[in-house]
Simulated assay, not measured.
Amino acid sequence: MAQDLFQSPDYLQLDDLLTEEHKMIRDAVRNYVKQEISPIIEEYAQKAEFPRQIVKQMGELGVFGPTIPAEYGGGGLDYISYGLMMQELERGDSGVRSTASVQGSLVMFPIYEYGNEEQRKKYLPKLGSGEWLGCFGLTEPNHGSNPSGMLTNFKDAGDHVILNGAKMWISNAPFADIAVVWAKNEEGVVHGLVVERGMEGFSTPTTHGKWSLRASATGELVFDNVKVPKANILPNVKGMRGPLSCLTKARFGIAWGTIGAAMDCYDTALRYAKERVQFDRPIAGFQLQQKKLAEMITEISKAQLLNWRVAVLMNEGKVTPAQVSMAKRNGCEVAHQACRDARQMLGGMGITGEYSVMRHMMNLESVITYEGTHDIHLLITGMDVTGLNAFS
């Protein structure tokens, strides 16, 4: 069983920017990852199997919907706390953080923000505790970066609606108890609906053959004349503002999470370089290896500062989606490069399951793509600074 020797890098003494509560929350999640995730995650990744037992564990830990008020099953915490939680979870594995991000930002957030009191009380406590697992249905087979082109639709049928269509690349789908699905009504207006497992015509086939996020459950959502009660439609939002606001919350978590993966790769490479002897001395003493380590810790430190500032803006209600977009893209890029450099430093050992680096690298290929690709986020920043829309 793998031993987790991780020591968190803090080159710029960023702990000074955190409260004692922030550090207690971070350390609790860090200890959970060391005790429950690191010893098992490689085996589950090799088997391409989702460790379902972690859902209840993470509910008990409080990482599902930590910014949701406590009266609805959340933690009532701030966004720095949320970011630190995601950082530590993805330090363990991107798929583990994905499970938490989807549950909190893409399922609990829209129900809390756009649902009514009855919907909040029905769904949120069970999602927050991990009794129920949720998923988020936006991406379609032919509409990824352009979600507004979605074909999934519903028609009025009295006290219910009839939902048809399909979503794909959906994290948590195979085991989800509910799905927050975005679909167009007969006028072409996008609405959110809560679809429950067991509704006739609703199925969630598993996506097989992944080389990335292998310990995460990914699947499709298929709707074949599904009868959804009108009481399950989120009443307080319409149009693309609904799903896009959810993505902003989730992208924030990704920005922090990816730096957790980068920190793990840096720590692994640093320890290995000090222990690995070639030409009669540790490879950490060679210039090219020091260059890699110096660049890694520099970019990680810059990303930590960016993430912290975005979290402060979120706490103050001042953040813009474009600012979160920048943090998501930057985090992915920094982490991806850290993985590549660490893998080279580990040589042949870097491709084995004895170390976490190659698993992180494969996972990040998905993280770079989902919830806005690297290129899409560049265009979001470009549009924000120029005022000109390059999308159409």
Rank of each mutant, 00 (worst) to 15 (best):
D224C: 02
V228S: 02
L213C: 11
M240P: 05
V190H: 03
V194H: 00
P235W: 04
L213V: 11
S203F: 03
L234N: 04
N236F: 10
N232K: 07
G201E: 08
T207V: 15
K184A: 11
S216K: 06
T207A: 14
G198W: 05
N225T: 03
V228M: 04
K184Q: 12
A231D: 08
W211K: 15
V190A: 13
K184W: 05
V190W: 01
F223T: 02
S212T: 13
L221K: 01
N232P: 00
I233K: 10
S212Y: 12
G242E: 06
V228T: 01
G198P: 10
E200W: 05
M240C: 13
V195N: 02
G239D: 10
T207F: 13
E220Y: 03
F223I: 03
H191G: 07
R214I: 04
I233V: 10
E187G: 04
S203I: 11
H208A: 14
G209K: 14
K210I: 08
F223P: 00
V190M: 13
T206D: 08
N236E: 12
S212G: 13
G201N: 11
A231G: 05
G219K: 03
A231F: 07
T206I: 13
V190T: 14
N236M: 06
E187A: 11
T218W: 10
M240L: 14
E200T: 12
V222W: 06
T204N: 03
T204S: 12
T204A: 12
H208Q: 15
A215E: 11
V226Y: 04
M199V: 08
R241K: 15
G201Y: 07
G239I: 14
L221T: 01
N232W: 00
V237T: 14
F202S: 01
K184G: 10
P229N: 06
R214V: 07
V222C: 00
L213D: 12
V190P: 01
G201H: 14
G188T: 09
N232E: 04
H208S: 15
T207D: 14
G219R: 00
T206Q: 15
